[in-house]
């Protein structure tokens, strides 16, 4: 019924369904574009991580691949000096308030930040910007989930899945440097209405929300 769309990404011809976003079309064809906040099922992407920039022929400046719908004949380039610069700066800013303790982090080797750093040759430690240590308490009150806000990159994936598939207890609060993912009244998970479904831990791209090991 629906006609397939043909477009090129990095010179490679690929097909996608009408309405697909460039990011998912690329990932489905094993073309990596850095991303943190995007969820394929969410059709109104937040585009908050600012990492999935691509160049599209005919566009004056790089755009976020997660919000751009595929068009027939579109020519997408995933790397360019402008894209690299945006991603490098965005990534560095994210890394200024992400607690780096990869060796003891449960997300080690499955972390999206490590992957981005590896794919784009970036440093996990910010080189030019100072670190913003927040030293927030780690919440291990829930029986199955550990929440370490010091590692949170505010991508909002957990908030979205909690609202659509979980108990709807996670949300953003405050603003600026103080912004964080939290529960109503900043209650620990065990004192909120959390049902410990751990979908949030399943979508967290970093080690902020993780499943508690029983050992």
């Amino acid at each position: 019924m629906s006609q397939q769309i043909t477009l090129t990404i990095d010179g490679q011809e690929i097909t996608a369904q009408p309405g697909d976003k460039v990011l998912w079309a690329a990932l489905a064809n094993k073309i990596y574009i850095p991303h943190l906040c995007a969820i394929e099922e969410n059709h109104t992407p937040f585009a908050s991580c600012r990492l999935c920039f691509v160049e599209i022929k005919g566009y004056p400046s790089p755009v976020t691949a997660c919000t751009e719908t595929v068009q027939p004949g579109m020519a997408v380039t995933t790397r360019s000096p402008r894209v690299d610069r945006l991603v490098r700066t965005g990534f560095e800013m994210l890394m200024t308030n992400h607690r780096l303790e990869c060796n003891i982090c449960p997300a080690n080797h499955s972390c999206a930040l490590q992957r981005i750093a590896r794919e784009r040759g970036l440093s996990l430690k910010p080189k030019e910007l100072p670190l913003l240590e927040r030293n927030l308490p780690v919440d291990d009150s829930a029986p199955g989930i550990i929440y370490d806000p010091n590692k949170c990159v505010l991508c909002g994936r957990c908030v979205w899945v909690c609202k659509t598939r979980g108990a709807g207890i996670l949300g953003f609060a405050r603003r600026g440097f103080d912004r964080m993912v939290t529960t109503f009244r900043d209650a620990p998970l065990a004192e909120s209405n959390c049902n410990y479904c751990d979908v949030c831990a399943g979508v967290c791209p970093v080690g902020a929300l993780t499943i508690k090991c029983m050992s």
Binding site: K163, G168, I169, L170, G171, F172, A173, R174, R175, T182, T183, F184, R185
Partner: peptide, 21 residues
């Protein structure tokens, strides 16, 4: 906030987010 959230059929945390923002 809880009363308002209930009236608007929103999760209380969303109202909390707005108030703290």
């Amino acid at each position: 906030m809880e009363v308002v959230a209930g009236y608007l059929d929103l999760p209380p945390v969303e109202v909390y987010g707005v108030v703290t923002f």
